[in-house]
Computed example of a mutant assay.
Amino acid sequence: MTHAFGKTLLSLATALVLGTGAATCAQAQQELRFTTSVPANSFIYADILSVWAERVTADSEGTLTIRLFPAGTLGRDASAHLDMVRNGIVDLAYFIPGYTPGAMTEATIVELPNMVPSATIGSVAATRMVEEGLWTGQGMESVKILGMFSTAPTLLTTRGPVASLEDVANLNLRGAGPTLLASIEAIGATPVGGLTAPQIAEALSRGLLDGTINEWVALTIFGISQTAQNHLNVNMGASAIMVAINRATYDALPAAAQAAIDRHSGEAFARLWGETFDARIEAFRSAAEQEPGRNFTTLSEAEQARWDERFQTVIDGWIAETPNGQALYDSFRAAVAEAAN
Results as ranks from 00 to 15, higher is better:
residue 1 M to H: 14
residue 4 A to I: 09
residue 4 A to L: 14
residue 4 A to V: 12
residue 12 L to P: 12
residue 18 L to K: 03
residue 20 T to K: 09
residue 25 C to P: 12
residue 26 A to C: 04
residue 33 R to G: 05
residue 41 N to R: 09
residue 59 D to H: 04
residue 65 T to Q: 08
residue 66 I to Y: 02
residue 67 R to M: 12
residue 72 G to Q: 12
residue 72 G to E: 12
residue 78 A to K: 15
residue 79 S to R: 15
residue 86 R to G: 11
residue 86 R to D: 02
residue 86 R to M: 01
residue 89 I to P: 04
residue 117 P to Y: 06
residue 118 S to I: 05
residue 129 M to P: 13
residue 130 V to W: 02
residue 149 F to C: 13
residue 157 T to M: 15
residue 170 N to C: 11
residue 171 L to H: 11
residue 173 L to E: 13
residue 175 G to S: 13
residue 178 P to L: 13
residue 190 T to A: 06
residue 192 V to C: 02
residue 194 G to Q: 01
residue 199 Q to V: 04
residue 207 G to N: 06
residue 222 F to W: 07
residue 227 T to P: 02
residue 239 S to K: 08
residue 249 T to F: 00
residue 250 Y to M: 00
residue 256 A to E: 00
residue 258 Q to I: 01
residue 262 D to W: 03
residue 263 R to Y: 00
residue 265 S to A: 10
residue 274 G to N: 04
residue 276 T to H: 05
residue 283 A to V: 01
residue 288 A to S: 12
residue 288 A to E: 08
residue 299 L to R: 01
residue 303 E to I: 10
residue 308 D to N: 15
residue 310 R to W: 07
residue 314 V to K: 14
residue 323 P to V: 14
residue 324 N to G: 13
residue 324 N to A: 11
residue 325 G to E: 13
residue 327 A to S: 15
residue 334 A to G: 11
residue 335 A to W: 05
residue 336 V to F: 00
residue 340 A to V: 07
residue 340 A to P: 07
